[in-house]
Simulated scan of single mutants.
Amino acid sequence: MAFSIQMTLNGDKRRVDLDDPRVTLLDLLRERLGLTGTKKGCDRGQCGACTVLVDGRRINACLTLAASLEGATVETIEGVADGTELHPLQQAFIDHDGFQCGYCTPGQIMSAIGLLREARVHGDPERVREQMSGNLCRCGAYAGIVEAVLDAERQLAGNTERGAA
């Protein structure tokens, strides 16, 4: 049963043909659209490696049927940077050693972007740990991840204040 859906993917309106209504967003992104930044970790929604934003909310792409995304806005790690300029969270992950092997990093960054958009951190490291608990890092780079999120929060708050002035 072939059909198509329309979505906005990293800022571009796209019509995507689906030949199977059971295909997950993760498989659509990686195997059919060539967006391999989103990683397949556990494929059960337990590790967060596949985290993307759908309509601004953090979701596990491995648990989301692509067919359910008609009209949705999907953001992946490939759409985060502005040309060659890294997103503040990407730069903060580099500055604070928020990764080791890097496998979980795209999901960590997407989850952190969603978290900061939800404005749930307020400079509190414990809130970051709690709100990022759905993203696992097998290398144990958690201290750097927390510092990166807090640093990016400060940077983004500073950019908002300067923009309002």
Rank of each mutant, 00 (worst) to 15 (best):
E147L: 12
A66Y: 02
F99A: 13
R129D: 07
P88K: 08
G123E: 02
G71E: 08
L116A: 08
Q155I: 08
T105S: 10
F3T: 13
I77H: 02
R57C: 14
R138E: 02
D95L: 10
G98L: 00
Q91L: 14
L35N: 05
C139Y: 04
C42Y: 08
G83H: 07
C47I: 01
E85M: 13
S111N: 05
Y103D: 03
N60Q: 15
E85Q: 15
G158E: 07
G11E: 09
D17Y: 14
H122W: 06
E118C: 11
C139K: 01
C104R: 10
I113V: 13
Q91F: 04
V23W: 06
L86F: 00
L89P: 06
L25Y: 07
E153W: 00
L86N: 08
S133F: 06
A165M: 13
T84C: 13
Q100T: 15
A152K: 09
N60M: 14
T8W: 12
E126R: 14
D82T: 15
G123T: 13
H96D: 10
I5R: 00
Y142H: 03
L9G: 04
G37Y: 00
M110Y: 07
I59M: 03
Q46V: 15
F99H: 11
G56E: 00
L29V: 05
A141P: 12
L33K: 05
I145Q: 03
A81Q: 07
E153S: 11
A143K: 15
N159P: 14
R127H: 11
E70W: 10
R127I: 10
L9I: 03
D55W: 13
H96L: 04
D19G: 15
M110W: 04
T84M: 14
R14N: 05
C62E: 01
V52Y: 06
N10E: 04
L63C: 11
R32G: 06
C139W: 00
A49L: 04
F93H: 10
G79V: 06
A81I: 13
L26A: 08
A141E: 09
A157F: 05
G34F: 00
G98D: 01
A2E: 15
M110D: 03
A157T: 11
L115E: 01
A66V: 01
A165N: 14
A72D: 01
D12I: 14
L53M: 05
D82K: 12
G107S: 02
Y142P: 11
E75D: 13
A66R: 00
D97M: 13
C101E: 03
A112H: 01
V23H: 01
R127C: 12
Q6R: 14
G158M: 09
E78Q: 01
V16W: 00
D82S: 11
T64S: 11
V74C: 02
R117E: 12
P106T: 00
E31G: 02
A164L: 14
V16K: 00
I109C: 04
A119L: 14
C50T: 05
D95N: 09
T76D: 05
I5E: 08
S111Q: 02
T36Y: 03
V121Q: 06
R58Q: 00
T160M: 12
L116E: 07
T36C: 08
G45I: 03
E78C: 04
E31D: 06
G123W: 01
